[in-house]
């Protein structure tokens, strides 16, 4: 079937990898994706499963509801064979972060924190801990202001010492790049420790 030569077509598609970017509403997820993505962030509708009754009604079967949410994403070409996707997850709902689909196969996650609303990132931290996905907490500095010391933030979020905590600016491309590198180095260290 060589009747239609297509000179530019690669032999096969690139291998996709992904990093999940989570955090509360308005914390800078889409901004971070936009700062570094090669394409303008795209939005798609996706379903998340909420387990709303789990905590309020102990002992009963939790009622699961499926909610449709908007998810933003972008991508970065790593090399000719590898493409990195960044998925900004809607994680603002206390019980809504039940999205195994998104986490399955991820290289790691960046949980973005706004120090003015630290509670908002609890569901994501909690979820990644349970899912066993390596994650890094990134405090979005919104222009250099930092109302709390890193140790105070760590304490307030009750995150383990081995979870890296970094400061970054979601509006700056290189700052976002460094945050993603922190995610990857954390995953790498964990994978190497597990392999030895």
């Amino acid at each position: 079937m060589d009747s239609k030569p297509s000179a530019e077509r690669p032999q096969r598609p690139p291998a996709p990898v992904k990093i999940v970017i989570a955090g509360g509403f308005g914390v800078g997820k889409t901004t971070a994706v936009a700062s570094i993505s090669e394409i303008s962030p795209l939005t798609t509708e996706a379903a998340i499963t909420s387990v709303g009754a789990e905590i309020d009604r102990v002992g009963e079967v939790p009622a699961k509801t499926t909610t449709t949410v908007a998810m933003d994403f972008g991508c970065i070409t790593i090399d000719e064979e590898v493409k990195l996707y960044l998925f900004g997850t809607p994680g603002q709902d206390r019980f809504g972060f039940m999205w195994g689909d998104l986490v399955r196969g991820a290289l790691g996650a960046l949980v973005i924190v706004d120090t003015r609303r630290m509670d908002d990132c609890y569901p994501a931290v909690d979820y990644f801990e349970k899912a066993g996905l390596p994650f890094v907490v990134g405090v979005n500095m919104f222009g250099g202001e930092l109302a709390h010391e890193p140790d105070d933030i760590r304490w307030a979020l009750a995150i383990a010492d081995e979870v890296p905590l970094i400061m970054f600016d979601a509006r700056e491309k290189l700052s976002v790049r460094d945050a993603l590198l922190a995610v990857l180095r954390n995953t790498f260290a964990k994978a190497r420790a597990a392999a030895s």
Binding site: V17, I78, D79, V82, L107, L181, L184, R185, R192
Partner: peptide, 11 residues
């Protein structure tokens, strides 16, 4: 590990 390193280099 080799994939993670590759993505690190790319970034």
């Amino acid at each position: 590990l080799s994939m993670i390193e590759r993505v690190i280099r790319g970034l």
